[in-house]
Amino acid sequence: MSEHTSATTATGINMYDVRPTTEVPAESPLAWSYHHTGHPGVSQRSRVVIRERAMLGHVVLRGGAIVLDEAVRQVLGFGLPARPNTLNQDPSGERSAQWLSPDEWLVIVPGGEEFSLEAKLREALGDAHYAIVNVSGGQTLLELEGEAATELLMKSTPYDVHPAGFPVGKGVTTVFAKSNLILRRPAEDRWELVLRRSFADYLYRWLLDAGQEYAIGVDD
């Protein structure tokens, strides 16, 4: 059978690469939604476009900011955001780190990098007190673009998405419809929504419903 990677660190932590090493069919949390609800196409009239960035590596870091920041700098080449509710990215925008709480950050990397990221961080962190948790199967990322994106967000979240309240580089965990998600703004004209797997279908249906009047399209 196929190989898999597992290790117990010197600090007594089980590290486990949960990605198959062989070609195995994988389904994003929105697979059922595309099948069941469908995905309206993008047209000239679409004032909002959503696009799933499926199968990325999502890793939660817990620990002291100073300790983690140094390790992240070593491994990713950029540091943790220092201010609450902010987001740092590498120049390609492919890797990001977001403040979630005073001792918690969400790191998103290209799919497949999550295990080596964990391994390298653990190596850099030694026996400091921290936690690293792979949550890649538990969430997915949606991009939201278009001139009506802000208004669509206003229908959905009580958080202030006006540029005055939500400049580029900000990211928050907040209420969205009757659920919640992570909302971030990596670029002037692009929002990102990090959805929990089990709520993804509800949130997807919400977005399509609220976006109907903007002829919302799903880019796939």
Partner: peptide, 12 residues
């Protein structure tokens, strides 16, 4: 006091 901003009651 940790997020250092005002948030809606729904979040608490």
């Amino acid at each position: 006091p940790y997020c250092e901003e005002l948030r809606e009651e729904e979040e608490f």
